[in-house]
Nucleic acid binder design. Structure first.
Length: 425
RNA sequence: GUGGGUGUAGCUCAGCGGUAGAGCGUCGGACUGUGGCUCCGAAUGUCGCGGGUUCGAACCCCGUCAUCCACCCCA
């Protein structure tokens, strides 16, 4: 019988890796809440149109990476490929602007993209992210980028660089695009096949090409920064000033483009240099999307957000960041007569707030103690016949081998373990 | 979608034409109520799958699947 396997690119996260995931998730939650963000949870499935209209019909994501299906022959649905579209949909659907002029949300959860899996890139992957609605000024941009950097810093992820660019407003973007394709078209034949295709639907990408000929041609191309309006420019300047003030180093990267159509003005990515990640080394990506809420049927609303890949953060964590979970006590029985009271004692300890393991199979004493040791328990509570006859049990410190007798009755046992724990720590 | 690497015990891998191995892990034991170290012992393999070459294939050839990495793109 062929065993069933998980779907390609969709991985199990086993208990051994969980402490690292929890570390990332808990740090993010605490930080986001400290920054006054509140969690929002949206469905994993949305109408396909939501993504087509927000991310853009001609983007890679919408064109070839979405898990889309028709539900019972009517509704066209899609597994969300990113978090912003759903968040905006919820913001509009619940008239969140009515609660106040500025809304700060954070989220955490799985996203789905049908790409070829490789290191740091999976078909089901987890993102954490934040969105701010209702603040058009550059200070939030800076605050948000700085927060992302602090998150990485707090996780011990060093050697990151913040890349920054501005796409200008919607008008600027179109104008620049036209100017760029106007510049590149005469050299069309000299470009690599990929770039010829890029020229059609995403000329900005040509600037990123690694082929030497393309680079040469691109070198003389107009720069987006020359096409920014005075307002766009002052927004960018304001953002950079504030970042400096916050002490967050960053580099201007005029060729930075991102794969989603909804971005306006501020665009940023945070990458890790020379870490565990291979070529998929973007940890955080984000930007401003001032027109999206309105285009999806809400009121005109300025907005900005970022997302980070949790797998990538976990991969980048320094060794030894997360410790395995260990029980404080391991309850050990010495024979069939002591298994019953041992199970009761374990329950009492657990309800007393003490993490406790017990081998309920009633194996040999030696194997139970071996297990206690393997699990990293601090103490073994040995329920032996002799002690039991006096209503007591042996509490053994597995580090020092010191062993004392303690009462097995309910409130006393918890207190006894408590005081023993305080002695060793 | 394209290219390359790899598929042998639960894990990491050796074996590269003569009929399957190591380390780690697991389990048991070393005078029978006391763990970690050490020692002894045990269990587990359709050598990814299908076909071909050969007296004989884990090893060579073809195909196929899986997986990893890279391109593309991104978190």
């Amino acid at each position: 019988m062929e065993p069933v396997r998980a779907v390609k690119g969709m991985n199990d996260v086993l208990p051994a890796e969980m402490p690292a995931w929890h570390l990332v998730e808990e740090r993010f939650r605490a930080l986001a809440e400290a920054y006054s963000y509140r969690e929002v949870r949206t469905p994993v499935v949305e109408p396909t149109a939501l993504f087509a209209r927000s991310i853009g019909e001609t983007t890679d994501i919408v064109e070839k990476e979405m898990y889309s299906f028709v539900d019972k022959g009517d509704e066209a649905l899609t597994l969300r490929p990113e978090g912003t579209a759903s968040s905006v949909r919820a913001y509009i659907q619940h008239s969140a602007w009515a609660e106040g002029p500025v809304t700060r949300w954070y989220y955490l959860g799985p996203m789905y993209r049908r790409e070829r899996p490789q290191k740091g890139r999976y078909r089901q992957f987890y993102q954490l992210g934040v969105e701010v609605y209702g603040d058009p000024g550059p200070h939030v941009d800076a605050e948000m980028i700085d927060m992302a950097v602090r998150l990485l810093e707090g996780l011990g992820i060093r050697r990151v660089t913040v890349e920054l660019n501005s796409l200008g407003g919607p008008g600027t973007r179109v104008a620049y695009r036209d100017a760029l394709s106007g510049f590149l078209s005469p050299s069309r034949e000299a470009l690599c096949p990929d770039c010829r295709r890029r020229l059609e639907h995403n000329p900005l990408r040509v600037l990123d090409c690694k082929v030497p000929t393309c680079r040469q041609i691109a070198a003389g191309a107009p720069r987006i920064t020359d096409h920014l309006t005075a307002e766009d420019r002052s927004h960018l300047d304001g953002l950079r000033r504030m970042l400096d003030r916050l002490g967050t180093p960053h580099v201007l990267e005029p060729r930075l483009v991102r794969g989603l159509d909804y971005y306006t003005r501020t665009l940023f990515e945070i990458k890790e240099e020379g870490g565990e990640l291979g070529s998929q080394n973007t940890l955080v990506g984000g930007g401003r999307y001032d027109g999206l809420v309105e285009s999806l049927g809400g009121p005109p609303t300025a907005a900005i957000g970022f997302a980070a890949g949790i797998e990538r953060l976990v991969l980048s964590l320094p060794d030894g960041s997360a410790n395995p979970i260990r029980p404080a006590v391991s309850v050990v029985s010495t024979g069939s007569a002591t298994l019953d009271p041992a199970v009761v004692a374990a329950r009492d300890l657990r309800l007393g707030g003490i993490a406790t393991d017990i081998d309920t199979r009633g194996s040999s004493l030696k194997s139970q103690l071996r297990r206690s040791d393997k699990l990293g328990a601090r103490f073994a509570l040995i329920v032996g016949e002799d002690e039991l006859s006096r209503g007591r049990a042996a509490l053994r410190d597995l580090g020092t081998k010191e062993q004392v007798e303690v009462p097995l009755s309910k409130p006393e046992i918890v207190d006894a373990v408590r005081t023993a724990m305080e002695k060793t720590t």
